[in-house]
Design a protein around this nucleic acid. Structure first.
Length: 420
RNA sequence: GGUGGUGUCGCGUAGUGGCCGAGCGCGCACGCCUCGAAAGCGUGUGAUGGGGCAACUCAUCCGUGGGUUCAAAUCCCACCACCACCGCCA
């Protein structure tokens, strides 16, 4: 949620942000108008309520006829109070509804434009030159007995799969390595719930009612998370954290669930785009003024992980129009996928500034002891998709795959060999 | 899933319709005392929104949401969480 105070003091900031996203900026006028009306409705309710309270005290002391007369007046007043309250609540709800739908203020340094207007910040590593025809990750996965899409489809439908044998070992090793790196960097390791309440999902910036990406269990009104960011953001909801303990960093390991509605026909081969995968996610709570620095730190930890799997990658600065609802700025790390001849996203880090914290009511105490909203940031350390990049970039002519040095202790193998 | 109990300002509690504008204890902060500390004594002690340069002030908040009433922490209903027992289960 964006800050109403900022809106009142600097509405042009929001207008500019909306335009940068390619969105409608007339919402600013709607908000200002609703805010004004809500404030005046609240004021009249408050003065009526004050009158009612003082009258109530008089009534309780009065006797006989005097009391009867006072009661008559109290009844009238009670009706007025109720009407005023309903009006104030109605306007507050209207304002809330509009406010909910407004995405975060975009960082002024983020590139303007849409999906294709990203800026490449850095390219790391050499693209490998193959002296044989490289196989794609699924062909390799099948040769290695590591990925079983057919049975995934049999058991659960399309975009489901089994990781088996060295495939399962590779994922476990990779995610354990990510956890270990996070722990060494001072993160608190977390295994999080994957089912969350509507308010938790909403607080993170997802629009539960319209979002076709999210699995819903109507019987229990619970949502399957698409990332442990959701659970980790909700973790400190309605809390006031000790300012001295900031930043607080969590590394969450969870399965992630995505409906992939509207992506029919896209990435249908292999495990690039699936309904269920595993991920280690970094999540950080920090002071708003430290958020930009923290964002750079998360990016640095992502690069550290990427270096360990020894694949060529680039970093892009996502354009405003391609940011999620809660992000003010986002950097993606994309690995080179040889058989596709292009870069694919392996990790992503977002600075959500105070947007999520405001919705979820997560605050900290500043030096004066006043509660303030803090900033939240998240970033990917490793996911199932990383297996794609590892297999393809480290394959050999015979279909075996060399395990990157750093990963070997975690996988327990130097080379993944094809099964007969 | 069933039965019973509990949910109050950091923690523990008091509070069964108007004097609750929420008391007390602990903790915490400050002050007195002390060479210093402990003990003791005194004062203070939340959140949100609004108004004022400010001391301050108004409204809202007693798990959540409804309801009854002129008036609700208190009465009624639903839900949620926790505890105990029973049943079922990885």
């Amino acid at each position: 949620m964006i800050d109403l105070r900022t809106l009142r003091e600097d509405p042009d900031r929001l207008r500019a942000s909306q335009r940068a996203r390619g969105a409608d900026d007339s919402v600013v006028d709607t908000l200002l108008d609703l805010d004004e009306r809500r404030r005046s409705a609240l004021t009249s309710f408050e003065s009526l309520r004050a009158e009612q309270k003082s009258l109530g005290k008089t009534v309780s002391r009065a006797q006989g006829e005097e009391k009867a007369a006072l009661l008559q007046r109290a009844k009238e007043l009670s009706t007025q109070v109720k009407t005023a309250e309903v009006e104030a609540e109605k306007l507050a709800a209207e304002l809330e509804a509009v406010l909910e739908a407004v995405p975060n203020l975009v960082d002024e340094d983020a590139p303007h434009g849409g999906e294709d207007d990203y800026v490449v910040l850095e390219e790391v590593g050499e693209k490998r030159v193959f002296d044989f025809e490289p196989k794609d990750h699924l062909e390799l996965g099948e040769l290695l007995g590591a990925i079983d899409m057919e049975r995934g489809a049999k058991v659960s439908g399309s975009r489901f799969f089994f990781l088996r044998g060295v495939g399962a070992r590779l994922q476990l090793g990779l995610l354990n390595m990510a956890m270990q790196q996070a722990i060494e960097a001072g993160f608190i390791p977390m295994i999080t719930p994957v089912l969350v309440k509507p308010e938790t999902m909403q607080g993170t910036g997802f629009h539960v009612a319209h979002d076709k990406e999210i699995y819903h269990l109507p019987e229990d009104d619970l949502y399957l998370v698409g990332t442990s960011e959701v659970s980790l953001a909700g973790y400190h909801a309605d809390e006031i954290l000790d300012g001295a303990s900031l930043p607080i960093r969590y590394a969450g390991w969870s399965s992630c669930f995505r409906r992939e509605a509207g992506s029919y026909g896209k990435d249908t081969r292999g495990i690039i785009r699936v309904h269920q995968f595993d991920k280690v996610e970094m999540f950080s709570y920090c002071r708003p003024e430290e958020a930009r620095e923290e964002h750079q730190r998360l990016l640095a930890w992502e690069k550290e992980m990427l270096a360990k799997i020894e694949v060529p990658y680039r970093i892009i600065d996502t354009a405003a129009g391609d940011l999620g609802t809660s992000a003010a700025r986002k950097f993606d790390c994309e690995a080179w996928i040889p058989t596709q001849g292009r870069y694919r996203e392996l990790s992503s880090t977002s600075n959500c500034t105070e947007f999520q914290a405001r919705r979820l009511a997560v605050r900290y105490r500043d030096k004066d002891g006043k509660p303030q909203h803090l900033a939240t940031l998240n970033g990917t350390l490793a996911t199932t998709r990383w297996i794609v990049a590892i297999l393809e970039n480290h394959q050999q002519a015979d279909g075996s795959v060399v395990v990157p040095q750093a990963l070997r202790p975690y996988v327990g193998l130097d080379v993944l060999e094809p099964v007969k």
